[in-house]
Design a protein around this nucleic acid. Structure first.
Lengths: 350, 350
DNA sequence: TTGAAAGCGATACCAG
DNA sequence: CTGGTATCGCTTTCAA
């Protein structure tokens, strides 16, 4: 192993195939055959090579190997999430990691923080790394970075939100139906004034859930009151403020539909502050840990992030295996989990 | 762009420097100079090259570039976590991602699931990718894979748990003091029978917190009762069962110290089942979302995962920048958050 | 200021 | 079965 001196450089240069070949007294090509388990190497040579590999502590250089390989693959994929620390994103991440593992593929993950230019920067970086494909929770409307990636004919699968640009697969939760079910559920308990609290209206999921809310009201013959609809609640403070405003205004709602899990939590915080948590019905979209330990236990429309992630990853690897059908939308159903908060009746509210 | 036909291969071959050079009618070295912003290229040539790059949609191949570069760096690091979907791990992850970004470095992340052979397999895979360094929540005692990595003289930083093998940096929370503080806090409220519920005793953090528990008892003059100490509660079921056993046995505790956040949650679930949540004092180690929304609100010893991650990443990059001092343990303090559950007095318990 | 040639660590192709 | 040589896409070295 050669030693470099420069500060900032890695000091040791790992052993190479050439060195293994020299030690085993065979050609480098034979070493390559042994390592790649290609047939047709005599047992004695093979053993000599393996011996040399152990002796030198040789480890195959996947990077160099991939450079020369004919299939042009790097056995890496990129994953662009809202934020790796967000529970929904990280559940997706884990499911994708597991599928990637089965395909001997490594995952580069990045957080977009809902910023289009972060998304673009990450996409370009991943393109420079020549990742084989991308799984993305898309942010931007223009998808500049993603477009360039797609031009290389590498597959992209969108997850949680669809892309609005080109033909690609999207794996989505059934936002609209889920929201509609939530609203109808509370209506069935006698609520006539059901408020909507939603995330940034520019987010596709927020918009869909809002449509589901409207649909749910329509299906139960309830009238939409614009005063009960609040959008763009992208921070906990905005949520709390909006909730409090709803209950200090005249003619308050008796039930709430919270369009996202952080919103649900903000709503609960506000209701606790107002002392109304046992009197106002609440169904949240997206489950969250401990929802069943709060009092009242929180009814939610649960998504299945692990299944979303698994499905997206499997779709991506299918594409990488040559699947050429047109891009499609795969919709994963949601499930209403009845726990208590959504079953509070209007009579509790005076 | 050449087109390959094979199923399973990526179809398009991205444009190369050579093609850019041909189009711009310059040497490939000149293209390289432009891309790497090396000085000494005439403005006209430079412009011609940039023009060709745009025209072809060229993107630099970082992988090939790194292969030839003298510093032997790949601008990637590996991150081995318990589970990317676990909130503590994912908070670490996010902090590390941010530091890596500042160093134009990409992160390969993997989940060990507390399994030594997964850890080893991941370490070897990452070695094959020639990552520049590793940040690891260590699992195994032998660290076979990590040892081999370290033999290449690439830095490893341990986070949350130290390594027991060789000289390397570790970034740790102050588990012992945190646990001791928790016990003394409840003792100060008059508790004399404080139980310990801990994770796998083979985990360093669990052992440290247990030591802190013992220390806390000793400092307050309380006697250690082995019947109140439960180890290896690595699943929610085990936690609930252990909790219930504690309260069905004669002479139950009036206060509980839960040694990990999933344990805390299991304990709460069990206490709710027993109807004891308002009567038994509880302090958990490690904060969790919604701890302040439960009733009673849950007092915890909070770690600072973001700071742990940031510190670990900065340490790793310092090593990569040539820092050669001996490996050290960096300890991040914990903080007792008083919210209610830890301040229940023994008189509540009859 | 520019470019030709060698080489990074491996695989592909074709002889023997 | 085994090995030589060209090549992957880029940087390095050195000469023009």
């Amino acid at each position: 192993m050669t030693t470099l001196a420069d500060k900032g450089n890695l000091v040791q240069r790992p052993p190479t195939m050439k060195e293994v070949a020299a030690l085993a007294n065979v050609s480098i090509k034979t070493v390559s055959r042994v390592i790649n388990e290609e047939p047709g190497v005599s047992p004695e040579l093979s053993e000599r090579v393996l011996q040399a590999i152990r002796q030198l502590g040789y480890h195959h250089n996947t990077t160099a190997s991939n450079l020369r390989r004919a299939d042009q693959r790097t056995a890496t994929i990129g994953l662009l999430l809202d934020d790796v620390a967000n529970p929904f994103s990280s559940a997706l991440h884990r499911a994708i990691e597991d599928v990637a593992n089965q395909h001997d593929t490594l995952v580069f993950t990045g957080s977009s923080d809902f910023e289009a230019d972060r998304e673009e920067r990450m996409a370009l970086t991943l393109m420079s790394r020549r990742v084989d494909g991308l799984i993305v929770m898309p942010v931007s409307q223009s998808h500049i970075g993603l477009q360039q990636f797609k031009q290389l004919d590498r597959p992209i699968v969108f997850v949680d939100r669809p892309a609005n640009l080109y033909d690609a697969d999207s794996v989505l939760a059934d936002n609209r139906v889920g929201a509609s079910v939530a609203v109808r559920h509370m209506a069935a308990y006698g609520h006539r004034r059901i408020a909507f609290l939603g995330d940034l209206h520019t987010l596709w999921t927020a918009a869909e859930r809002h449509l589901g809310y409207i649909e749910g009201l329509a299906l139960t013959g309830l009238q939409l009151d614009p005063a009960l609809v609040r959008h763009d609640l992208h921070s906990i403070n905005l949520v709390e403020q909006a909730t409090i405003e709803l209950f200090t205004a005249p003619n308050p709602p008796s039930a709430l539909f919270a369009g996202q899990n952080l919103i649900t939590i903000g709503v609960i915080r506000a209701l606790q502050r107002l002392g109304l948590q046992q009197q106002v019905a609440l169904v949240g979209f997206d489950d969250f840990p401990l929802a069943d330990l709060l009092m009242p236990r929180v009814s939610v429309v649960a998504q299945d992030p692990a299944l979303l992630g698994k499905t997206a990853a499997e779709r991506l690897f299918a594409r990488l295996d040559g699947e050429r059908s047109p891009g499609e939308r795969i919709v994963i159903p949601t499930q209403l989990l009845i726990r208590g908060s959504g079953e509070i009746t209007p009579s509790a509210f005076t």
